[in-house]
Design a protein around this nucleic acid. Structure first.
Lengths: 340, 340
DNA sequence: GCAGGCACCTAATTCAAATTAGAACATCGA
DNA sequence: TCGATGTTCTAATTTGAATTAGGTGCCTGC
């Protein structure tokens, strides 16, 4: 059996209280005698004492467990997962802060959509709080839990923050504005924008950033497309360039490859005839045809910061309306050059 | 504040004992009245009761929480991670059996090697048992925990099972013997083996399977190499073929690509001049130059089965010496043909 | 010689649940 | 009507550590 504080106490001929005090370094505060302290410490060493976290957590009311919730499989089958990098960050954050993570897999066991409440046996609350990643289809349940005072932190998109809990996201607007500034700085005047055919928050914010960037830096828009997931038609690329565009901003990293193909087909050289700048992280550099100049979304940092934020929220450091926008970084590549 | 059993007790006008008994389904065993049971259950529902994992763990109850332990980051930074597929399987197993997973990230917080005990933050016991993946550098600690009766199940390699707990692995020996049989069945007589430069269990077992297969099917060995992580030198490939090999078995999936390059360089066609069979799963088919004929290690199934096994072990269905070897599957590809 | 204060330590309680050992009451057979 | 058996529930304890609220003895100052 593992030694307890009371075993140390017996060996050192003191009370369990004194042992606890000593082991927690409160000797000065409570005036424990130096000699007593040494007896206790050596007894602890002799017995190979290891505190029981469970007991400690019970007393402290904290479980040191943070939930991770994603409405989907967490260990992604596809390698293109949006979650992956965020999860890496969350893990790092948890390591740094000494928390363990709970994956609420049991909520998936029912068929149909995963439910946080899961028929009343609400497992969620075994954690001290929960990180929620991505797209939410469960606002009703979240509202209920938040009203009960259960702490959440959201990562990434949050359509209606609704003050349910703090969130961490990236500064998409700022990132695209800054791209616009650099485009202009390299002499470009006329630009185009290639978007994905949906309207989730990060994309809307990029578009806002583009609009503001264009205005602030006196650029003109040669074309915008939001039509196809995979990328634009060759025709669109050609027309855009013919109408004077010398730089193209691309929302989706997968679209970049299509752009490359279209340019090849149209006899356009990147970046000599057209500078191309990606507005999202490159998911898999290994499968990229070239070294794209792009904006990296700090997903890892977002995950990592979210862990700290959740702990701070639990401790009452921030209110539920608190949020942070982490800056994106500009990654130099070989697809962006001065206007020729 | 979160409701406790005593709150339910007050509302249902019974003792905390009765609440505990009822919530744990021991009504029959202790003869709790149907009406009392219903009062308790509805009170619990009304208050939104959720058991406190910490208290339960302290006292020694079940939490429907299974730990996952890997001595390394669980969410891999590299996409080539050995763990990934196993984790997918574990997640599926957990979903099927209604367990939640705890990632013991907190043990990594100390610098240096991750320790299960780690100066006292042994949180392991909040889980009902733990899955241990991969290579273990901590046998001493495991022994200690196992002696305390904490349930483990090991996945994959286990150098000294030491009867600490059951394990799940793949039948590497059988898989390679069966490859040898097929090689012979397609008329090959002389074969070569390309291994990785280390001696962990799965590789040793593959080599044993190769040795036995060669003997059983009356094959001869034209060459064996264990020199380089990335693959063989061109010279080795040439010599092997010149000495009569018509089939090559390759341990590492990454090595396959090197083999392809060497063959191209030497003017050897696969499979016309040389059949090539991989002995491990193809990690990323997208980056494969061709559709390799190979043995797939059932890592997903191993993870999934390990979850069940852990539950069975906790329930005393198996002893600590129990283990299972799951069969590998033979995946047809375009790199293995009859000897011409 | 007695209040006040300090140094040093401990008994008792708390955390939330599980469990052991019975208690209170009814019923039944002899 | 007495013991035996059952039914239905509870008081008290346990888990391991942290904390609160003291308690004891010694010294100082007046």
């Amino acid at each position: 059996m593992r030694p307890r504080q009371s075993d140390i106490a017996r060996l050192a001929r003191v009370s369990q209280t004194t042992v606890s005090l000593t082991l927690n370094g409160k000797t000065a505060e409570y005036g424990i005698n130096r000699a007593t302290e040494e007896r206790i410490m050596s007894a602890a060493r002799e017995l190979g004492y290891v505190p029981n976290v469970t007991a400690r957590a019970l007393r402290g009311g904290r479980n040191c467990l943070l939930g991770v919730h994603a409405y989907e499989s967490l260990f992604p089958t596809s390698r293109e997962s949006y979650y992956e990098e965020i999860l890496v960050g969350i893990e790092q954050g948890a390591i740094r802060t000494g928390q363990d993570l709970v994956l609420f897999t049991s909520v998936h066991s029912g068929q149909g959509r995963a439910s946080i409440f899961d028929g009343g046996r609400n497992r969620l609350k075994i954690a001290d709080g929960t990180l929620i990643i991505g797209f939410d289809q469960h606002d009703d349940e979240l509202v209920r839990l938040a009203e009960e005072g259960f702490p959440f932190v959201f990562i990434g998109r949050r359509e209606k923050p609704a003050a349910l809990g703090p969130y961490v996201t990236a500064d998409y607007v700022g990132a695209v504005r800054s791209v616009a500034a650099q485009v202009r700085a390299l002499g470009h005047r006329r630009v185009a924008y290639l978007g994905l055919p949906d309207y989730i928050e990060p994309r809307l914010e990029r578009r806002e950033g583009f609009a503001r960037g264009v205005e602030e830096h006196d650029l003109t828009v040669a074309g915008q497309s939001f039509g196809h997931l995979e990328g634009p038609h060759e025709r669109w690329v050609q027309e855009m360039v013919e109408s004077g565009a010398t730089a193209l901003l691309v929302e989706g990293s997968a679209q970049l490859e299509t752009v490359a193909q279209r340019c090849d087909a149209a006899g356009l050289r990147i970046p000599d005839d057209l500078s191309v700048i990606g507005l999202d992280s490159i998911t898999d550099p290994a499968t990229s045809s070239r070294h794209w100049t792009h904006v990296r979304v700090p997903r890892r940092e977002m995950g990592s910061r979210a862990v700290e934020l959740l702990l701070e929220f639990i401790d009452g450091v921030h209110g539920p309306a608190y949020h942070e926008r982490l800056p994106c970084t500009f990654e130099e590549g070989e697809t962006f050059c001065p206007r020729s």
